[in-house]
Deep mutational scan, measured.
Amino acid sequence: GLTEEQKQEIREAFDLFDTDGSGTIDAKELKVAMRALGFEPKKEEIKKMISEIDKDGSGTIDFEEFLTMMTA
């Protein structure tokens, strides 16, 4: 499992990506986040990433899903 410290770091990354503070990361926010990390993702790639992570089919990534992605 994760230490509380690791969870906190992932939470901070999540909050950075969640620019509108909605508690979820949408495609637009993910794209901005990827760019910040030096990637140039295409729209299809973003969609694919979200569909792989987005277990509940909401079209957005919540913290639990993000946590799973970061620790996979």
Score class of each variant (00 low, 15 high):
residue 69 M to C: 11
residue 72 A to I: 07
residue 1 G to I: 11
residue 59 G to D: 07
residue 8 Q to L: 12
residue 53 I to P: 02
residue 33 A to K: 02
residue 47 K to D: 15
residue 24 T to M: 08
residue 4 E to N: 12
residue 35 R to Y: 10
residue 34 M to S: 01
residue 66 F to C: 01
residue 14 F to Y: 02
residue 37 L to N: 03
residue 39 F to V: 07
residue 69 M to K: 02
residue 55 K to S: 09
residue 31 K to R: 14
residue 2 L to C: 11
residue 56 D to I: 10
residue 58 S to T: 10
residue 49 M to G: 02
residue 64 E to C: 11
residue 1 G to L: 09
residue 27 A to W: 15
residue 19 T to S: 11
residue 32 V to W: 15
residue 1 G to Q: 08
residue 62 D to A: 14
residue 71 T to V: 11
residue 33 A to R: 02
residue 66 F to S: 00
residue 28 K to S: 09
residue 62 D to N: 15
residue 5 E to N: 09
residue 35 R to I: 13
residue 14 F to S: 00
residue 61 I to T: 00
residue 30 L to R: 00
residue 15 D to P: 01
residue 41 P to I: 14
residue 23 G to Y: 02
residue 47 K to G: 09
residue 39 F to G: 01
residue 3 T to E: 01
residue 52 E to Q: 12
residue 18 D to R: 05
residue 43 K to Y: 14
residue 17 F to H: 04
residue 61 I to R: 00
residue 25 I to R: 00
residue 49 M to H: 03
residue 21 G to F: 05
residue 22 S to W: 03
residue 56 D to W: 10
residue 21 G to H: 12
residue 45 E to M: 07
residue 50 I to N: 03
residue 60 T to N: 07
residue 9 E to P: 04
residue 57 G to M: 08
residue 52 E to S: 13
residue 71 T to I: 11
residue 43 K to M: 14
residue 42 K to C: 15
residue 52 E to C: 15
residue 68 T to G: 09
residue 9 E to A: 11
residue 56 D to Y: 08
residue 62 D to E: 05
residue 42 K to N: 14
residue 24 T to W: 10
residue 72 A to H: 13
residue 46 I to Q: 03
residue 7 K to N: 03
residue 43 K to V: 12
residue 18 D to W: 05
residue 32 V to L: 15
residue 61 I to Y: 04
residue 60 T to P: 03
residue 65 E to C: 14
residue 53 I to F: 14
residue 50 I to P: 02
residue 18 D to P: 01
residue 66 F to N: 00
residue 41 P to V: 15
residue 65 E to T: 14
residue 47 K to P: 04
residue 30 L to I: 08
residue 6 Q to L: 12
residue 45 E to D: 11
residue 36 A to K: 09
residue 37 L to R: 01
residue 68 T to E: 09
residue 62 D to F: 14
residue 5 E to S: 11
residue 30 L to D: 00
residue 38 G to R: 03
residue 55 K to D: 04
residue 47 K to T: 10
residue 19 T to H: 11
residue 3 T to C: 09
residue 8 Q to E: 07
residue 65 E to N: 09
residue 46 I to W: 13
residue 6 Q to V: 07
residue 16 L to V: 05
residue 46 I to A: 02
residue 48 K to P: 03
residue 63 F to I: 04
residue 24 T to Y: 08
residue 44 E to I: 05
residue 58 S to M: 06
residue 18 D to Q: 04
residue 39 F to R: 04
residue 36 A to M: 11
residue 64 E to W: 09
residue 18 D to N: 04
residue 72 A to K: 12
residue 30 L to K: 00
residue 54 D to H: 10
residue 35 R to T: 12
residue 57 G to Q: 08
residue 52 E to D: 10
residue 51 S to E: 12
residue 37 L to I: 04
residue 3 T to Q: 04
residue 64 E to I: 08
residue 71 T to P: 03
residue 5 E to R: 09
residue 12 E to P: 02
residue 70 M to C: 11
residue 25 I to Y: 01
residue 12 E to F: 11
residue 38 G to A: 03
residue 60 T to H: 07
residue 3 T to W: 04
residue 13 A to P: 00
residue 57 G to V: 05
residue 56 D to N: 13
residue 36 A to D: 06
residue 43 K to H: 12
residue 18 D to C: 10
residue 65 E to L: 12
residue 14 F to Q: 00
residue 72 A to D: 07
residue 2 L to K: 04
residue 3 T to F: 03
residue 40 E to D: 15
residue 9 E to F: 12
residue 35 R to C: 15
residue 63 F to H: 01
residue 49 M to W: 11
residue 14 F to N: 00
residue 51 S to T: 05
residue 51 S to F: 09
residue 45 E to W: 15
residue 19 T to G: 04
residue 22 S to T: 08
residue 56 D to R: 12
residue 60 T to K: 13
residue 56 D to A: 08
residue 34 M to R: 00
residue 60 T to V: 09
residue 20 D to R: 06
residue 69 M to Q: 01
residue 11 R to L: 04
residue 44 E to P: 05
residue 27 A to Q: 06
residue 21 G to K: 08
residue 45 E to R: 04
residue 31 K to N: 11
residue 20 D to A: 05
residue 48 K to M: 15
residue 9 E to V: 13
residue 9 E to D: 08
residue 29 E to K: 05
residue 44 E to K: 05
residue 52 E to H: 10
residue 31 K to C: 15
residue 14 F to W: 06
residue 49 M to R: 03
residue 31 K to V: 15
residue 39 F to K: 05
residue 4 E to P: 14
residue 38 G to S: 02
residue 4 E to G: 06
residue 27 A to P: 07
residue 50 I to V: 10
residue 70 M to H: 04
residue 42 K to Q: 10
residue 48 K to T: 06
residue 69 M to G: 01
residue 50 I to Q: 03
residue 59 G to N: 06
residue 31 K to D: 15
residue 15 D to G: 05
residue 10 I to L: 12
residue 45 E to K: 04
residue 11 R to I: 02
residue 54 D to L: 07
residue 5 E to D: 08
residue 11 R to N: 01
residue 53 I to Y: 14
residue 6 Q to P: 01
residue 60 T to E: 07
residue 28 K to Q: 10
residue 60 T to S: 08
residue 20 D to N: 10
residue 1 G to D: 05
residue 3 T to G: 07
residue 18 D to E: 01
residue 60 T to C: 12
residue 48 K to C: 14
residue 5 E to G: 09
residue 28 K to A: 09
residue 69 M to S: 02
residue 39 F to I: 07
residue 1 G to V: 12
residue 20 D to E: 05
residue 40 E to F: 14
residue 62 D to H: 09
residue 65 E to Y: 12
residue 14 F to P: 00
residue 21 G to L: 03
residue 65 E to V: 12
residue 61 I to L: 06
